[in-house]
Amino acid sequence: MGQGLERIIQESVPGKQITIAHVIASPAPDIYDRLGLERREAIGILTISPYEASIIAADVAAKAADVGIGFLDRFTGSVVLLGDVQSVETALRAVCDMMRGRMGFTVVETTRS
Protein backbone atom coordinates (compact mmCIF):
# COMPACT_ATOMS: atom_id res chain seq x y z
CA MET A 1 0.00 0.00 0.00
CA GLY A 2 2.74 2.50 0.68
CA GLN A 3 3.77 2.83 -2.99
CA GLY A 4 2.78 6.47 -3.33
CA LEU A 5 -0.66 5.68 -4.74
CA GLU A 6 -3.36 8.07 -3.76
CA ARG A 7 -7.00 7.10 -3.40
CA ILE A 8 -9.51 9.81 -4.28
CA ILE A 9 -13.19 9.57 -3.45
CA GLN A 10 -15.45 11.99 -5.31
CA GLU A 11 -18.93 12.79 -4.20
CA SER A 12 -21.54 14.82 -6.03
CA VAL A 13 -23.48 17.20 -3.83
CA PRO A 14 -26.02 19.01 -5.97
CA GLY A 15 -26.72 22.62 -5.27
CA LYS A 16 -29.72 24.58 -6.39
CA GLN A 17 -28.89 25.08 -10.03
CA ILE A 18 -29.96 24.91 -13.64
CA THR A 19 -26.95 23.64 -15.59
CA ILE A 20 -28.49 23.45 -19.07
CA ALA A 21 -31.20 25.67 -20.58
CA HIS A 22 -31.09 25.19 -24.33
CA VAL A 23 -33.43 25.60 -27.31
CA ILE A 24 -33.01 23.43 -30.39
CA ALA A 25 -34.77 25.29 -33.19
CA SER A 26 -35.77 23.08 -36.14
CA PRO A 27 -34.32 19.80 -34.80
CA ALA A 28 -33.38 17.02 -37.20
CA PRO A 29 -36.36 14.63 -37.53
CA ASP A 30 -34.22 11.73 -36.34
CA ILE A 31 -33.93 13.35 -32.90
CA TYR A 32 -37.69 13.11 -32.39
CA ASP A 33 -37.71 9.49 -33.54
CA ARG A 34 -34.85 8.46 -31.26
CA LEU A 35 -36.43 10.14 -28.26
CA GLY A 36 -39.94 8.96 -29.05
CA LEU A 37 -41.26 12.53 -29.09
CA GLU A 38 -44.00 14.21 -31.09
CA ARG A 39 -42.52 16.38 -33.85
CA ARG A 40 -42.79 20.10 -33.18
CA GLU A 41 -40.91 23.18 -34.32
CA ALA A 42 -38.51 23.30 -31.36
CA ILE A 43 -37.19 21.35 -28.37
CA GLY A 44 -36.24 22.94 -25.06
CA ILE A 45 -33.88 21.14 -22.67
CA LEU A 46 -33.37 21.81 -18.96
CA THR A 47 -31.12 20.04 -16.47
CA ILE A 48 -31.87 20.90 -12.87
CA SER A 49 -30.69 19.99 -9.40
CA PRO A 50 -31.97 19.10 -6.95
CA TYR A 51 -33.72 16.73 -9.30
CA GLU A 52 -37.17 17.12 -7.74
CA ALA A 53 -37.17 20.76 -8.85
CA SER A 54 -37.73 19.47 -12.40
CA ILE A 55 -41.39 18.98 -11.41
CA ILE A 56 -41.65 22.66 -10.49
CA ALA A 57 -39.88 23.66 -13.71
CA ALA A 58 -42.29 21.64 -15.86
CA ASP A 59 -45.28 23.24 -14.15
CA VAL A 60 -43.90 26.77 -14.55
CA ALA A 61 -43.05 26.12 -18.23
CA ALA A 62 -46.49 24.72 -19.05
CA LYS A 63 -48.21 27.69 -17.41
CA ALA A 64 -45.92 30.29 -19.02
CA ALA A 65 -46.27 29.31 -22.68
CA ASP A 66 -47.96 26.94 -25.11
CA VAL A 67 -45.48 24.09 -24.68
CA GLY A 68 -45.88 20.39 -24.17
CA ILE A 69 -43.84 18.35 -21.72
CA GLY A 70 -42.01 15.85 -23.89
CA PHE A 71 -40.09 14.32 -21.00
CA LEU A 72 -39.77 14.84 -17.26
CA ASP A 73 -37.44 12.80 -15.06
CA ARG A 74 -37.50 13.62 -11.36
CA PHE A 75 -34.62 11.18 -10.81
CA THR A 76 -32.14 12.98 -13.11
CA GLY A 77 -33.55 16.51 -13.23
CA SER A 78 -34.14 16.42 -16.99
CA VAL A 79 -37.02 18.30 -18.61
CA VAL A 80 -37.73 18.36 -22.35
CA LEU A 81 -40.25 20.87 -23.71
CA LEU A 82 -41.89 20.86 -27.13
CA GLY A 83 -43.47 23.73 -29.05
CA ASP A 84 -42.78 26.56 -31.44
CA VAL A 85 -39.48 28.38 -30.99
CA GLN A 86 -40.95 31.48 -29.32
CA SER A 87 -43.04 29.44 -26.86
CA VAL A 88 -40.11 27.22 -25.90
CA GLU A 89 -37.87 30.27 -25.37
CA THR A 90 -40.60 31.96 -23.30
CA ALA A 91 -41.06 28.85 -21.18
CA LEU A 92 -37.32 28.44 -20.55
CA ARG A 93 -37.00 32.10 -19.63
CA ALA A 94 -39.94 31.84 -17.20
CA VAL A 95 -38.42 28.78 -15.52
CA CYS A 96 -34.97 30.35 -15.22
CA ASP A 97 -36.36 33.66 -13.94
CA MET A 98 -38.56 32.01 -11.31
CA MET A 99 -35.92 29.56 -10.12
CA ARG A 100 -33.29 32.31 -9.90
CA GLY A 101 -35.49 35.03 -8.44
CA ARG A 102 -37.85 33.21 -6.11
CA MET A 103 -35.92 30.06 -5.24
CA GLY A 104 -32.31 31.28 -5.20
CA PHE A 105 -31.01 28.94 -7.91
CA THR A 106 -27.82 29.52 -9.86
CA VAL A 107 -28.88 29.59 -13.49
CA VAL A 108 -26.89 29.35 -16.75
CA GLU A 109 -27.55 31.57 -19.73
CA THR A 110 -30.15 30.14 -22.12
CA THR A 111 -28.54 29.01 -25.38
CA ARG A 112 -29.95 28.19 -28.81
CA SER A 113 -28.89 26.09 -31.76
Rank of each mutant, 00 (worst) to 15 (best):
G2W: 10
Q3E: 15
Q3K: 15
L5F: 12
L5S: 14
L5Q: 14
E6W: 13
E6A: 15
E6H: 13
R7P: 03
I8L: 15
I9F: 13
I9Y: 15
E11Y: 09
S12H: 13
V13D: 10
P14F: 11
G15W: 07
G15C: 07
G15I: 06
G15N: 06
Q17A: 12
Q17G: 11
Q17V: 12
I18E: 03
I20F: 08
I20W: 07
I20M: 11
I20H: 10
A21K: 04
A21V: 05
V23M: 02
I24K: 10
A25F: 08
S26M: 09
P27V: 09
P27D: 10
D30L: 11
D30E: 15
D30Y: 06
I31P: 04
D33Y: 11
D33R: 12
R34A: 13
L35N: 04
G36Y: 10
G36S: 04
L37G: 04
L37T: 02
L37M: 07
E38V: 14
E38P: 05
R39H: 09
E41Y: 02
I43E: 06
I43M: 10
I43C: 05
G44A: 12
I45K: 11
I45Q: 02
L46K: 06
Y51P: 10
Y51H: 15
A53H: 09
S54Q: 03
S54A: 14
S54I: 09
I55F: 06
I55Q: 13
I55N: 13
I55G: 10
A57N: 04
A57Y: 05
A57T: 06
A57C: 08
D59W: 05
D59E: 14
V60D: 02
A61F: 05
A62R: 11
A62M: 14
K63A: 04
K63N: 01
A64G: 03
A64T: 01
A64F: 01
A64S: 10
A65S: 08
D66A: 06
V67Q: 00
F71Y: 05
D73V: 02
D73C: 08
D73K: 03
D73S: 10
F75L: 10
T76A: 03
V79I: 03
V79M: 02
V79F: 00
V80R: 06
V80E: 00
V80Y: 08
L81P: 00
L81W: 01
D84G: 00
D84E: 04
V85M: 01
S87A: 11
S87E: 08
S87V: 00
V88A: 01
E89C: 02
T90P: 00
A91S: 02
V95T: 01
C96L: 11
D97I: 07
D97H: 07
M98K: 11
M98C: 07
G104A: 07
F105R: 01
V107I: 11
V108G: 08
V108C: 12
V108A: 06
E109G: 04
T110A: 12
T111C: 04
T111D: 08
R112H: 10
S113I: 09
S113N: 13
